[in-house]
Design a protein around this nucleic acid. Sequence first.
DNA 1: CTCGTAGGCCAACAGGTGTTGACGTCGATG
DNA 2: CATCGACGTCAACACCTGTTGGCCTACGAG
Lengths: 211, 211
Amino acid sequence: MTASSTDPTGTPGGTGTGTGTPGGASSGARRSDATRGAILTAARERFASDGYERATIRAIAKDAHIDPSMVMRYFGSKEGLFAAAVALDLRLPDLTAVPRDEVGRALVGHFLSLWEENEELTAVLRVGATNQAGAERMQGIFRDQLLPVARQACPDPEQIPVRAALCASQLLGLALTRYVLRLPPAVALHPQEIVAWLAPTVQRYLTAPSP
Amino acid sequence: MTASSTDPTGTPGGTGTGTGTPGGASSGARRSDATRGAILTAARERFASDGYERATIRAIAKDAHIDPSMVMRYFGSKEGLFAAAVALDLRLPDLTAVPRDEVGRALVGHFLSLWEENEELTAVLRVGATNQAGAERMQGIFRDQLLPVARQACPDPEQIPVRAALCASQLLGLALTRYVLRLPPAVALHPQEIVAWLAPTVQRYLTAPSP
DNA sequence: CTCGTAGGCCAACAGGTGTTGACGTCGATG
DNA sequence: CATCGACGTCAACACCTGTTGGCCTACGAG
């Protein structure tokens, strides 16, 4: 799912002959894995803070202390790098284990901690606002990860997409104002306040009868 | 307010000697106003659909059927062009004339029609997500236009910024999912449905006691 | 009619971009 | 020890960007 259309080189080394992989039995650790990781970390930071266009391969390579051409050899292209850098897994909780009237609070809290602790989400949001491919990636995340969870909490199956989209609008809207646009009052809010304000909204979008 | 720091050339012609302005007494119409308008229209479209970086001056000039250098002469720089293209006035209604329990509906409806009919808002949102200057412009719009209106509807003066920011998160979140990311269910929603779902949220953010 | 000037186009500059290929180097393998 | 391939660097390509200055044209004032 991550690198569907663009997979020009994969990773150098092939892993075909079985001659490589020093050290042991089954782990696919290569000598270059540290470099790969450094590139991915630098890429995530740049994409999150600069967006797609302004996050240049040269800058990412400099952050990772390697040559720009290495980025190309490992990830094929800038788009391939982005796809590898933000393989986003929301790790959404299982809502069937949550009391029906607590799903709003659970979702808001989960998203908030997700957003606070890593910048992948900011990266994919910023790129989604800039780039067509980024927007499609966001649509995929919505479809594959948020929709199934909404299905667990939503009474009428026919209304699941609408209700999930409403939740997305509120959750992404908070992320936009707080982490991207940085409206001062949105930045100043404490996480508990955010949960207290937004949980009823998400709860209503998911479970209340349609207006 | 619109072009504070960047005003290198203004408009060619000066309007100082009074020799120009063919046709009549007071109207400041210049021969080049049509071209200026064409440039601004093309710029708005490009900024809205491509974001700041990918909206190139060359593409805008081609859309307006003129030379790229004309854009520079009229607006000084790309940033000057952007500032002139999105001189955003939300034209928010006077909430003191609206019944206290209708402010949510009024605000959501106003924003929705605003967004549907012109693309300036999409442009400023997209650029705000890409560009630092764009984000600051968005902060200014929030501070100068949304905050005063929230002041009219909000009981506790101390909570005005927080409540306005919450409203912004929901309103901008809808715009993001519907006009930028284009999540299919958010696109498919009818305006009346949107108002019906979002009005209670905004109403609560503005007037309900804090949770 | 003459002429200044606003309006417009053309060609070019300097810098930055993604991307490519040739060239070293070091460790592990035969 | 000799060899091969993964790892990495350097230099360059072709392209596109914002921006600049010079030149031409045509309208309206005198």
